[in-house]
């Protein structure tokens, strides 16, 4: 099967007065139709910048400097054509006809992502009207249907509600309804459950899984929460400092992690089976400052398997180690 989205060698840099921040520095991954890909990593590893680069939402002083973002675009007649999003003008018509229509975003903070002075109905209808040639009444009908679909009680009345009149969970549901407005083929969820409490979080995850199945969408799910990844993802991309460390199906990542970073991450999850009083293993050190990235493998200063003269001199490339997983580490060279 051909991938729906294929990111190759993506580099997104921010040119600041103090220097260049290489937020994303060579990222490769694929998303197949109907697949849920989880991108996991610590804060600042470039996962949000990666997906914003895919949507070409990076603002000055940031820029997509290199790489391909190949997307299987479907025109009105249903014909498919692969286009490189990285080549498009970030303000142009072409990318705008894809944003919201074929690739939709669920943002991190539903509260701040709705305008506080416009009703949610107005904003959802707008999403419909932007990409579909329908009348206002029809757009309204579609919006109410979407709200109903995401389990919003009294969707008709809620059309008139403002985002700050809803609870956190309902707000996120309204946001999901807005993202689904045009039946996207790829849904990008940027830490959609971070801002809500754990019980609501579980409901929202369940909802996303149901919707993904019904609409047969592909989903990119970004989180720093490995627990969430285990629940939702089919395939996992582990990122560190703007690079992909390891990719693989979710079972392999959790049961047979290969990269020292993935192993360390998994070890630092608290377990209810751990003996009482035992210290939680952590990853030594902290993430380097964006201006002082280590040369070579970005993880080597914190890596237990550090090989002097190898890891700190050249950068390992992401290579398949079996038919499922790929790792960028010199241990597997």
């Amino acid at each position: 099967m051909e991938p729906l989205l294929s990111v190759r060698g993506l580099k997104t840099y921010f040119y600041l007065d103090e220097g260049t921040v290489k937020a994303v520095d060579g990222v490769d991954f694929d998303v197949f139709p109907g697949q849920i890909v989880g991108i996991v990593g610590e804060s600042g590893c470039g996962k949000s910048v990666t997906i914003k680069s895919v949507l070409r939402l990076i603002q000055n002083p940031g820029r997509v400097v290199e790489g391909e973002i190949l997307f299987r675009h479907q025109d009105e007649d249903g014909r498919e054509k692969t286009i490189d999003l990285a080549q498009l003008d970030p303000h142009g018509k072409a990318i705008r006809s894809i944003r919201g229509a074929e690739i939709a975003l669920i943002p991190q903070e539903p509260m701040a992502s709705f305008s506080p002075v416009h009703t949610i109905g107005d904003q959802i209808m707008e999403a419909v009207l932007l990409h579909q040639d329908v009348s206002k009444e029809e757009a309204r009908r579609i919006s109410i249907e979407r709200l109903h679909e995401v389990g919003m009680p009294n969707p008709e009345q809620r059309m008139k509600a403002y985002s700050w009149e809803l609870s956190g969970g309902l707000r996120q549901r309204a946001m999901i309804a807005m993202s689904l407005a045009c039946n996207p083929r790829l849904l990008i969820a940027d830490e959609p459950t971070t801002a809500i409490d754990v019980t609501t979080q579980a409901q929202v995850l369940r909802l996303l899984l149901d919707l993904q199945e019904q609409h047969n969408m592909a989903v990119i799910f970004i989180t720093h929460d490995l627990g969430v990844i285990a629940q939702i993802a089919d395939f996992v991309v582990v990122m560190y400092l703007g690079r992909v460390m390891e990719t693989g199906p979710v079972e392999d990542i959790f049961f047979h992690p290969q990269h020292p970073y993935t192993k360390a991450l998994l070890e630092s999850i608290p377990s209810i089976y751990a003996p009482a009083g035992e210290r939680l293993p952590t990853i030594e050190g902290s993430i380097p400052h964006p201006f002082s990235r280590p040369s070579g493998c970005p993880f080597y200063p914190r890596c237990k398997a550090f090989m002097p003269g190898v890891c700190n001199t050249s950068t390992p490339q992401l290579k398949p180690i079996n038919d499922r997983q790929a790792v960028s580490c010199f241990l597997y060279d």
Binding site: G100, A104, P116, H118, H131
Partner: peptide
């Protein structure tokens, strides 16, 4: 720089239209 501006962009709105509708209003 507020997230609702980025969200409007992610919906595929043109820059001028979204600026005039959302942040200018606020």
């Amino acid at each position: 720089n507020k997230p609702y501006v980025e969200m409007a962009r992610a919906k595929g709105m043109s820059e001028w239209r979204l600026v005039l509708k959302y942040p200018v209003h606020l």
